[in-house]
Design a protein around this nucleic acid. Structure first.
Ligand SMILES: [Mn+2]
Ligand SMILES: [Mn+2]
Ligand SMILES: [Mn+2]
Ligand SMILES: [Mn+2]
Lengths: 220, 220
DNA sequence: AAATAAATTTAGACAAATCTAAAAAATATA
DNA sequence: TATATTTTTTAGATTTGTCTAAATTTATTT
């Protein structure tokens, strides 16, 4: 089956939303995609006709196995291109998303196979998000948000939950990137802010809202 | 001004056609783009409205300076991506065109600047066609078709006029690629076929119709 | 349970890009 | 020059993706 760029954007959006709830609702898709609920409903009918979506009027919807598989294919392409843009072309972290948003719709299996080989079969994109393999399998890694990490455990940053320029600026200031080693040395109950120790740098303090967006994992 | 992928494809097609005639005609565009004359007329009105085309009903048309500039930008992107696909991803010559046909529409000036730098600012694409620079300037190189090259002059292959799988197969068989050194040793007036000497290989004979599609240049 | 609010869908419109079939203009031919 | 042929344009339709405004269904409050 073949899908247009627009259909693919909806598929991807629904996929991401259904990771955190059983059934997805119309308004949520409209909000994340910056369209209107009526447009979403139109697309739902089309995706149901194409048999990649379970959907009943007024009851919510979710991708079926076929739909999820296709979503993972698009996400794979998106994240491989992001990796390319950062690692090969030298783009900054916060500039790559809109470009990958276009590149992900280029359809050629051979292109993706060759790009993947060229990049060395990377497992994570520059934001720390996992890259599904050609069968749609995702490397899963136990990770937790920095603001629930117990004190004094040395961990590595595995991903960031917010990929804005503002967040990048903040992380740069703290010398934090994907893979950075750090530990939490103190937690202030007043506002939930944390004192952390970043490897090779003096202790510093970060707010709870920043910490919430930093995901870490233990050891290698 | 912003252009859709479809508009860009028309612009590119008109640009190529007007390289070999003063005014382009509707049917020629329809033929090269595999659309219908009526669709071309619709698009001509649109491109005229956007002020990149000189066009009068029934009289033919051509891109103005603005239009030519935009065409060169698209061609630059197309050829840079083709170079990437062959030199970095290891694609064969005859598989890259449809992929570049999509990639050329991705719009990000920074992407093209960085891609160009990454590729080492190449001057020619894998088919030997010149890559316009960021100002739309084309490196021009005096080249001539192999079937009008005088005997015994040693030249280098600079481009091929036919980029099909069939042509690639043929050229591979003759050990000919872009940059290959060769000379014409004999010309048969019966059917215009040529005997050529490819560097490091024994003499061989090629037909006039193959020769017509091989372009060569002297020295360096 | 009725009234109100929120979420969702339908109805109807629009722009972009394409098509077919018919009309009009330009060109070639007898 | 009149007729035939080719080229180009117009008229009108279709598909895709979007929108607004109104109707409908579901959920939440009194
Ligand atoms: Mn996208
Ligand atoms: Mn990412
Ligand atoms: Mn194209
Ligand atoms: Mn080329």
């Amino acid at each position: 089956m073949n899908f247009s760029s627009s259909e693919e954007n909806y598929i991807k959006s629904i996929y991401h939303l259904q990771q955190s709830c059983e059934l997805v609702n119309t308004n949520a898709v409209a909000a994340t995609m910056h369209t209107r609920a009526a447009s979403v409903t139109d697309m739902l009918k089309k995706l149901k006709r194409k048999k990649i979506l379970q959907y009943e009027r007024y009851k919510g919807f979710k991708l079926n196995e076929q739909g999820k598989k296709h979503a993972l294919g698009i996400i794979r392409k998106h994240r491989l291109w992001e990796y390319f843009l950062v690692e090969k072309l030298g783009f900054a972290w916060d500039k790559i998303h809109p470009i990958a948003e276009e590149l992900e719709h280029i359809c050629s299996d051979e292109l993706i196979t060759k790009l993947n080989d060229y990049l060395g079969n990377p497992a994570f994109d520059p934001h720390g998000d996992p890259i599904p393999d050609q069968h749609g399998r995702i490397p899963n890694r136990k990770q937790l948000s920095l603001n629930i990490l117990p004190l004094k455990q040395t961990v590595k940053v595995s991903a960031v939950g917010n990929q804005s320029t503002q967040m990048l600026e903040m992380l740069k200031h703290y010398h934090i990137g994907i893979g950075t080693q750090l530990s939490v040395t103190k937690r202030f109950s007043f506002d939930g802010s944390l004192e952390i120790k970043v490897l090779k740098f003096p202790n510093c303090i970060i707010s709870a809202s920043v910490a919430k967006n930093i995901f870490v994992h233990h050891d290698k």
